[in-house]
Simulated scan of single mutants.
Amino acid sequence: MNDVATLTPTEARERFRAGLRVPTSGWCAGWTQANLLAVPRDLAYDFLLFAQRNPAPCPILDVTEPGEVSSQRFAGDLRTDLPAYRIYEHGELVAEVDDVTGHWRDDMVAFLIGCSFTFEDALLEAGVPVRHLEQGGNVPMYRTSIACRPAGSLSGPMVVSMRPMPASQVATAVRVTSRYPAVHGAPVHIGSPADLGITDLDTPDFGDPVEVRPGEVPVFWACGVTPQAAVMQSRPALAIGHAPGHMAITDIRESEHLVP
C-alpha cells in the first residue's frame, strides 16, 4: 500500500468505500480527521446541547441537515466513506460494519466532532513521540470517572485518549496541542491514571494498549468517543458512530484549526 500520509481525503474515502478497514491515524497528512455521531432528528438538539456543554470532548466541526449524507466539509458519503462504523440500538452495540446505508434513516442528523489525530503531525514535528503510530496500532481510549454535563436525555462519562512520553516532553505536548482547541486542544490530565478512575492502562475500553516505557508519563486528552459513551449510558433508540480510531477524513485543512 502506498504511503497513506500522502493521500488526499478523496483518495482515502475511495479506499474505505471499497472495503478497506483500518485505523486512520497517520492518514492524509494536513487534513482534519473527525469523529462521527448520527442520531434521529428528535435527538439532535439534545446532542447539540450536550456538545456545547462539553466542548473539550465534543468540539463540533460540522452538522448536516436531516437526511443529508455529505456536507461542504465532508464531500464524501457519510454512510460508506469511513473505514468502520458502530450501530447502537437502545444503547447496545448491535453491529460493527463498513457500510451503514441500510441503517441510515431519512431523519438522521450527522455531527462531525474534532479528533486528536489531527494534531499528531504537529506533535511529531515537535519531537514528541506518538507511540501508537510507532507500534502500528490504534490509540488507547478509556472511560473515566469524570461525568460530562448532561443535556436533555443525554448523559455519560468523558472518554480520554492517552499518549505516553518522557516527562521532559510534556510541556512541549501541552504547548503544541493547546493551539488546536477545535480538535480537543491541551491535555485534560497528566500523570496518574487512577485520578481519572482508570485502573489499568493495559486494558483500554477502546483501541489498543501501548507500551509505557520507564521514565515516561501518560498524557490524556479529551476524546471524541465520548458521545458514544453517552449513547451507551442514555440508551436512545438509534445512534450511528464511527468505530473508534476509524475516522471521517474531512475536506478541512488542519491549519484551519491552528490558533496563535
Rank of each mutant, 00 (worst) to 15 (best):
T199W: 10
I240W: 15
A38Y: 01
D200A: 14
D77R: 02
G26V: 00
P59R: 02
A151N: 07
D77Y: 03
V69Y: 12
M232S: 13
R21W: 04
L258C: 06
L49S: 11
G114I: 01
F117I: 12
M165P: 02
V159M: 05
H90F: 10
V219T: 08
F16G: 09
D42C: 08
V231T: 12
S168C: 06
L78W: 00
T8N: 04
R143V: 01
V259P: 05
W221F: 11
V69C: 00
E14P: 01
V170M: 03
G156K: 01
Q52C: 13
D205M: 02
F50G: 02
P166G: 07
A5I: 00
I87Y: 06
M1S: 15
G185W: 01
E68N: 12
L49N: 10
S71H: 09
E134A: 15
H184A: 05
D195V: 09
A51Y: 12
Q228I: 06
P166N: 08
I60Y: 10
P214V: 09
D99Q: 10
P140Q: 05
A44C: 07
H90G: 15
S255I: 07
I87C: 10
G152D: 02
P187E: 00
V183Q: 07
I249N: 04
I190A: 12
A194L: 08
R213C: 09
G136T: 06
Y180G: 01
D107P: 00
I60P: 10
E134T: 05
I190S: 04
A95N: 04
T226Q: 12
I198W: 13
M158A: 14
G76M: 05
I87W: 15
R79N: 00
I190V: 13
F220Q: 06
G26N: 09
M1H: 11
E254L: 08
Q33A: 12
L61G: 04
P157A: 14
G67Y: 02
T144H: 06
V69Q: 10
P140I: 00
E256D: 14
N54C: 11
P57K: 05
F111T: 03
N35R: 04
R13C: 00
R131S: 13
F119T: 06
I198E: 02
C148D: 06
V170Q: 05
L196D: 06
T203D: 12
T24M: 07
G245M: 07
S234Q: 05
A38R: 03
W27F: 11
I252V: 08
F206H: 14
T80C: 08
L112I: 02
G19M: 10
L7Y: 08
L112W: 03
E14Q: 12
A248K: 04
V139G: 01
M158E: 14
F206V: 01
P140T: 03
H189N: 08
A248C: 11
I249D: 10
A51H: 01
A18W: 08
L61C: 11
S168K: 13
C115P: 05
V176G: 02
P187R: 13
R105H: 11
I190Q: 07
A194T: 15
A18F: 10
P129I: 00
G30H: 02
S155D: 11
A237H: 15
L133Q: 10
